[in-house]
């Protein structure tokens, strides 16, 4: 993507995001959300985030402990920390340190 394409993409993202946030606030009571849609919306974050994160964790770095890639191992450690601490910083720090340590030990 060229820089012009990137800026166009980001501008469109900004418009789409604002439209979603403004939807009900601006249109007010003139629209109501169907119950089925409301129910489905609750599962969007979990489904989308998992769909992004899973292939990224299985993408091979070329360095593995046996058949298991170090990125997957570091990701599992980070997931455990995310579950226990709910902290972005702790998850990020543990995941990166795990990746560096494993890469250093195995590579």
């Amino acid at each position: 993507m060229t820089t012009a394409d990137t800026l166009l993409l980001f501008s469109l993202m900004a418009l789409v995001t604002l439209a979603q946030r403004a939807s009900f606030i601006v249109l007010g009571d003139r629209v109501t959300m169907p119950p089925l849609l409301r129910r489905a919306l609750a599962y969007v974050p979990a489904a989308v985030l998992a769909a992004i994160v899973t292939p990224a964790l299985f993408r091979e770095s070329g360095v593995g402990v046996g058949p298991v890639d170090v990125r997957l191992l570091a990701g599992l450690v980070a997931a455990l920390v995310a579950w226990r601490t709910k902290s972005i910083i702790a998850t990020f720090a543990t995941g990166m340190v795990a990746l560096w340590t494993l890469t250093y030990l195995v590579g």
Partner: peptide, 28 residues
């Protein structure tokens, strides 16, 4: 690698019910 880590930090605490967990496992 910060990208998947950041998403993990957002995803894992959001898995509070069985349907949510199923949504994540199926999506992933």
């Amino acid at each position: 690698f910060a990208i998947p880590l950041l998403f993990l930090a957002l995803l894992v605490p959001a898995l509070r019910s069985r349907p949510t967990l199923l949504a994540a496992l199926t999506g992933g």
